[in-house]
Design a protein around this nucleic acid. Structure first.
Lengths: 203, 203
DNA sequence: GTCTATAGAGGGATAGAC
DNA sequence: GTCTATCCCTCTATAGAC
């Protein structure tokens, strides 16, 4: 377990938090040992408990932050009445892709811990019916294609997020290196909105 | 931990194996306790070690089986020179959807354990360049859309598999119950191939 | 605040009776 | 083959010195 690269000015608490984010995100709650976090933070194990009381409490703090980065930026996009559906799709694709290129372990972590703790999602949501009441879903429904807008949403998200989930398998199966994979993800920022337009016309 | 529903004629070994499949798939390797498996199998903990030597050895056997069910059926579909690209897409969508409706925890399990053990995938593959040499990839490339066929493949798989990964979050966010979700997945068996046709025309 | 040392619980594995 | 009892290591958490 390598030491996390941290600003020298970071406080001990921040360094433990950063290490917690790194290790928990990569290995999940169960497979993570507090010793790994302490080592990654370059501190003694006792300090973790001194600052955060327990493994679980640190984990919960990490989780809250991750949920916010995963769901936080999408609100302003899908609730914007001024932008067209096409523009929203482009923004969602490019924002999520940037986020996931920076945090490749994020989706697996979120999906996994959501399985153990589905209600946690609700608390992370700004409000009830967060999706349902959005301009994005309304605009999709107004296309009058007779289709469930959520079906379309699942497909967009799948096209954006799934490649990052499949990355380890994909790299192995297709002999793709990191640079090539990154390049593919950048290409998808253009590809996916085009595909979406075609899908909307078709349905 | 409830007892696994098993045939009364199953041998003890088979019952432990079935319980292992269930618990490992649901919770992953690290979060699974051998005691959970023993309880689910309705046997004593010592018998697990008697039949399988260790937790890890049982896990590996479970993993091999899961990999085969996840990758096994796709070979005959994508290597069939007689079927059209469109037919292959329909077959992939419907086969995978059936599989995942029966085994909703399967994709998360496969993706997760593949992170820890990427080389494992290679051993599960029938041969080197399994994808690359398939009729499916060749047919996609022959579309001469100037596009990387793997980009398209990632999208299809994302549309099929991602909803199952997102199921817990999706149900919470949209107040969808199991019956409704299942119905949506069945609808997607028709929707996805149509979308794919539109995407291929577009690109 | 930060360390060392250790308590205490949990869980994988085995010995040995039946 | 199947059970009970238990070993022993690992890991979380804390006590207490500095």
């Amino acid at each position: 377990m390598k030491k996390v690269t941290t600003e020298p000015t970071q406080s001990t608490e921040e360094r433990i938090m950063a290490a917690g984010r790194e290790v928990f995100t990569k290995k999940g709650f169960a497979a993570t040992r507090t010793r790994d976090i302490a080592e990654a933070a370059g501190i003694n194990l006792a300090l973790l408990n001194y600052y955060f009381r327990s493994k679980k409490k640190l984990f919960d703090l990490v989780m809250i932050g991750k949920l916010q980065s995963f769901f936080g930026f999408i609100g302003p996009i899908i609730y914007n009445d001024k932008t067209s559906l096409e523009t929203k799709i482009e923004m969602i694709v490019s924002s999520y892709t940037s986020l996931l290129m920076e945090n490749p372990d994020l989706p697996y972590f979120i999906l996994g811990e959501a399985r153990n703790n589905p209600e946690l999602m609700l608390n992370a949501m700004p409000k009830k019916d967060f999706l349902k009441k959005s301009a994005f879903i309304r605009q999709l429904a107004n296309k009058k294609t007779g289709q469930d807008p959520y079906q379309f949403l699942l497909s967009i998200l799948g096209m954006i997020i799934f490649p990052f989930l499949m990355k380890p398998i994909f790299k192995t199966l297709t002999n793709t290196n990191d640079a090539k994979f990154k390049q593919m993800m950048i290409q998808r920022v253009k590809l996916i909105p085009n595909w979406c337009k075609a899908m909307l016309r078709a349905s």
